[in-house]
């Protein structure tokens, strides 16, 4: 299912404080779209507004022309998936049980999961590389394994667009690469992928498009080379940065040196 996710004029106030001021975002199918910006820029809030987990005070989100606001929770979950940043799982479910829960939006109320669902779960486990953990309790997993399991749950949900809030922030470098490769893979299949990333060099390597948020507004959006510039780094993050090309990957490399002058 290839779908374009489009946000227009998203405005959000939380507890009376304005967080987002009219944000536009276009996420094309088949592309990985990174959201970057300093802490408090509104990245997580934007992701939640896109997933309709918070109701924006203004603006609209559409999936290939279908407004998400009027949809029931089930239908919406078939169009947009969301992985929160907090990955704490303290319940004693098996990995397979957790991934199978991702099928919720596809199940009929009075019927149990069928062979198609079991198949989708098996494929999701394999694709995320956690098939060998299927019968383990999620409580016994490492942070990296747990994140892969929760991504497998998203795969089982099979939405048109994947939204992920800092999917690699707590992971070691091997898991970071594994997760980012998985995101590239999903985009390769024609899904739209939006991820909040704090590591600018990983964002530059993994994303087709980067949108830089600053104080609740889009400051810049474009290819990594267009967005990661010394001027924007100074203006948005307040740091003096040197940007060159990483000889190994050919993508922009950001070295933050100190506070901007």
């Amino acid at each position: 299912m290839t779908r374009t996710l489009t946000a227009r004029g998203i405005a959000v106030r939380l507890g009376g404080t304005p967080i987002l001021h009219g944000v536009d975002l276009d996420v094309e199918p088949g592309r990985v779209h990174a959201l970057i910006g300093p802490n408090g820029a509104g990245k997580s809030t934007l992701l939640r507004a896109l997933a309709q987990l918070i109701t924006p005070d203004g603006g609209s989100v559409t999936s290939s022309g279908t407004p998400l606001a009027g949809l029931g929770a089930r239908r919406r979950a078939q169009l947009v998936g969301f992985l929160p940043q907090d990955t704490g799982v303290d319940q004693d479910f098996t990995v397979r049980d957790v991934v199978a829960m991702g099928r919720y939006a596809h199940l009929q109320r009075w019927r149990g999961p069928g062979p198609l669902d079991a198949d989708a779960v098996t494929r999701a486990l394999a694709r995320a590389g956690v098939a060998d953990l299927a019968h383990r309790s999620v409580r016994t997993l490492s942070g990296g394994q747990r994140q892969l399991v929760l991504i497998a749950k998203q795969l089982a949900q099979a939405p048109g667009a994947y939204l992920l809030d800092e999917p690699v922030s707590a992971l070691d470098v091997a898991y970071q690469l594994q997760v980012l490769n998985l995101l590239r893979d999903l985009a390769g299949d024609g899904s739209a992928v939006v991820a909040v990333l704090h590591d600018l060099n990983l964002a530059a390597r993994c994303a087709d498009t980067i949108t830089m948020l600053h104080a609740g507004r889009v400051r810049a959006s474009g290819s990594p080379a267009q967005v990661l510039t010394p001027d924007l780094m100074a203006e948005v993050y307040g740091v003096r940065a040197v940007i060159d090309t990483d000889p190994a990957t050919g993508t922009p490399r950001v070295s933050a040196l100190g506070p901007a002058a």
Partner: peptide, 24 residues
């Protein structure tokens, strides 16, 4: 007894349950 699927998702995380399609 009709709410068991929803409860399973909600004990994991209420926000994730909503994103999975549960009317929390």
């Amino acid at each position: 007894l009709c709410l068991t699927r929803e409860l399973n998702l909600m004990v994991l995380s209420e926000e994730a349950a909503a994103a999975t399609g549960v009317n929390t």
